[in-house]
Design a protein around this nucleic acid. Structure first.
Lengths: 132, 132, 132, 132
DNA sequence: GTGGTCTAGACCACA
DNA sequence: GTGGTCTAGACCACA
């Protein structure tokens, strides 16, 4: 759970995002129990109110469900996972393209820069499908 | 000057960013006068103080210089332009990669998704260097 | 916190200076919490925004650090103290010399006048190392 | 005429000060004609209004007198010179002492620091009356 | 309560 | 008109 306390993005939003990413990465699976908001608050060195707000937001978005007295659980909906993953990825792609367009970059430049970013010192001619 | 009033990112920061982008795009050139903070406030429907905060931040970052009573000008440093453009682009690349990695994407997937984002209906095989 | 409301030097700058002096004098120590900007505003009979501007300037100069919701603290860097003290003292010396040179004073005159300023009615011959 | 356009001290005040210093240094003598405010404005790259304000202030302080159609002249009062010189010097001394006291410096330290500032690499023991 | 952002608007020095 | 400072006060995220 990476949090940036100096970011203007509210911590509770960052938390929701981190949970989504953990889901997308497969580190959290449907049905998993997540720590109580008090526990999570201690782990993240964040005020319990803030965690609670994050949990409420996740519930509102249908990511989790709460069973009173038992805890909060990732919703047992396997399709959701795939959906979140592709939603977030596409949002990232869109944002990247917008940002680069805002800088006056054309598609080729974007692809080239991404490629270089992914393969820092690599020869960029060759067949990039074999690297990584 | 695109501003999102609902974003958690402060308006004054968005303004600094927009000026940087305009510079990167070549819409603003070194030595150009930018509107007075009061004028810009009217244009952007924002409080003059907010614009001033943005302008002061730009000054602090060395983007602009100010002649009291005369106005604020893009600093006459042509190298700055190129630097800002590449800085901002590289930041965007890095952020994109981080975000995608956070979602468990591997480099190939990132490149493929970007390619698809750039050429929505396009055949995705072939030699992408000749399209656009 | 001595403020001169008629000085052309902005209040917020005077405040930064006063904090630096308090540090140099040892009245503020690394790690100390300083009053919230609202509290300080009441104490100094100044608008909270003005105090905040001073605090932000101090942060920008690396004098303080801020924990959101917790307060603003003198940075915990003991070397900073000594550095500030000597920086400010040397700046004062330089300014004094410049000023006096601007008046056509030679070094000896400067030293003599300072000595007299420090020991108003004193015999100025003798060994000044034993006075004070 | 040294002017600092970024100083919070108004330019017209800086101008008055510079004239006083020139007087103290003997670069301007009683009875001397000083440039017209328009001329001076061009020389100093300052708005004529600003120079005029400086000249008015000097007149108000009894430094100069204006003969209509002839120009502005340093007042023909030789005692004034000496008075200004010692006034300004004493003000500088007082300010220096205050500043250093504000930093917690004791008189000896002030004298030593001034001495070192005046004789940068010099041996500080010996008889400083013979140096310079 | 604490810091951060923002609006609304006054007044000043300077061009 | 232009930038700079300041007051007054609202609202928000977070502790």
């Amino acid at each position: 759970m990476q949090l940036n306390f100096n970011s203007p993005i509210p911590i509770y939003m960052q938390m929701v995002d981190e949970v989504k990413k953990a889901l997308a990465r497969g580190e959290l699976a449907p049905g998993d129990k997540i720590p109580s908001h008090k526990e999570q608050a201690q782990i993240s060195k964040v005020n319990p109110n803030t965690v609670q707000k994050a949990y409420q937001e996740m519930e509102r978005e249908g990511l989790t469900e709460t069973l009173r007295g038992q805890g909060t659980f990732i919703k047992n909906d396997p399709t959701m996972l795939i959906q979140i993953r592709s939603e977030m990825a596409q949002a990232a792609v869109r944002q990247f393209i917008d940002e680069m367009q805002g800088l006056g970059m054309v598609p080729d430049e974007m692809e080239r820069m991404l490629h270089e970013g992914l393969h820092p010192k690599g020869k960029k001619g060759g067949n990039n499908r074999d690297e990584t």
